[in-house]
């Protein structure tokens, strides 16, 4: 039915622009894209408006109430107030901002460690020839074929025997070097001219100095893309914090907001306000790094 609608629309456009099929086509293109953008964005708009609506009118309107109805009774910060007020737990009162800090800390720490280890590995595989390189790369490619879930139970036992239960070590250490990332870095570092590296070597630069001062600044776009991917992955990680962390004040946003569905059963606005707060940091990072991100993703797909 929708297709018929668009076909009809196209006919009308052709009738309006009898000479110019190009213009009619372009109009239709923008209409279709506009519809897609509307469908994609409406949940976000709905989320923002729900977070600010009073619980009495939450279900009354699809988005915000009409302007004539605007008042502090319909639009206010009650949801945020309830959310930020804190809740009692075994370890005393825990505030929502603590979870935000936990999530920020974990995602940033994981990203920094990962960037360092992964880019070093990628550099070794891109600019050196050594015995065993092929074996390592084949091993890496093979290891990517196994689903991460296979390792969940054995790693859980290891974390337990290391005494890392309820500790951030459990979330930071096991994934501190990404195989996928090493391939990405290798791919962009191969393009760095060898002459540059040779020249630095003749000038007496150390091998680490060459990696850190010459090669890393040249692969800035890939670094941006990798940081964003890693930050998002850790920020949105649910299963790790869910199985390893126990103390309420150590939890991260995905785990806590999932709990809140059960806690605030009749106050959707509260956990929607929390969800809104939880998607702001990755959004900021994405807008800052989106150019690098798209470039990094595309090069990976086309050449890989």
């Amino acid at each position: 039915m929708t297709l018929l609608l668009f076909a009809g629309l196209y006919m009308i456009l052709r009738w309006v622009y009898p000479r110019d099929a190009e213009i009619a086509g372009a109009c239709l293109r923008y209409i279709l894209l506009g519809c897609a953008a509307f469908l994609v964005l409406s949940p976000f708009v709905w989320l923002v408006s729900s977070a600010f609506k009073d619980k009495d009118v939450l279900m009354q309107y699809s988005f915000l109430p009409p302007i004539s109805e605007w008042s502090t009774r319909t639009i206010n910060l009650d949801n945020f107030r309830t959310l930020l007020n804190g809740e009692d737990s075994v370890v005393g009162k825990v505030y929502f901002w603590e979870y935000v800090v936990n999530s920020l800390f974990l995602a940033s720490a994981a990203t920094s460690i990962n960037l360092f280890f992964t880019s070093m590995g990628g550099y070794a595989l891109s600019k050196y020839t050594f015995r065993g390189k092929k074996v390592i790369m084949a091993f890496m490619a093979g290891s990517m074929m196994f689903p991460g879930m296979l390792f969940l139970a054995p790693i859980y036992r290891m974390i337990f025997s290391f005494g890392w239960m309820d500790s951030y070590m459990a979330l930071l250490v096991p994934g501190a070097c990404s195989v996928f990332g090493m391939f990405l870095f290798r791919q962009s570092m191969v393009a760095v001219p060898d002459s540059l590296i040779e020249a630095a070597r003749i000038d007496g630069a150390s091998e680490f100095g060459i990696y850190y001062r010459i090669v890393m600044p040249l692969v800035r776009p890939m670094t941006g893309a990798f940081c964003l991917i890693t930050f998002l992955g850790n920020w949105n990680n649910f299963i790790g914090p869910q199985i390893y962390l126990q103390t309420q004040s150590k939890l991260t946003l995905p785990v806590v907001l999932n709990q809140y569905i059960g806690v605030y059963t009749q106050q959707y606005g509260v956990f929607l306000a929390g969800t809104l707060l939880a998607i702001i940091p990755p959004a900021i990072l994405f807008f800052a790094l989106q150019r690098e991100f798209v470039a990094g993703l595309s090069s990976g797909a086309v050449k890989g």
Binding site: F116, F117, T118, M120, G121, Y123, A124, L125, Y128, F130, K133, I136, S143, F146, L150, F151, A153, P154, I155, R157, M158, V173, P174, G175, A176, C177, V179, M182, E207, F208, Y211
Partner: peptide
């Protein structure tokens, strides 16, 4: 000759502890 292996040390250590061992353990 030593440099690439130094750069790869974090990967080799982490993959032995958190990939090869759990793989066998699984």
């Amino acid at each position: 000759a030593a440099a690439p292996w130094c750069f790869l040390t974090p990967y080799i250590v982490l993959t032995s502890v958190f990939f090869i061992y759990p793989f066998l353990n699984a």
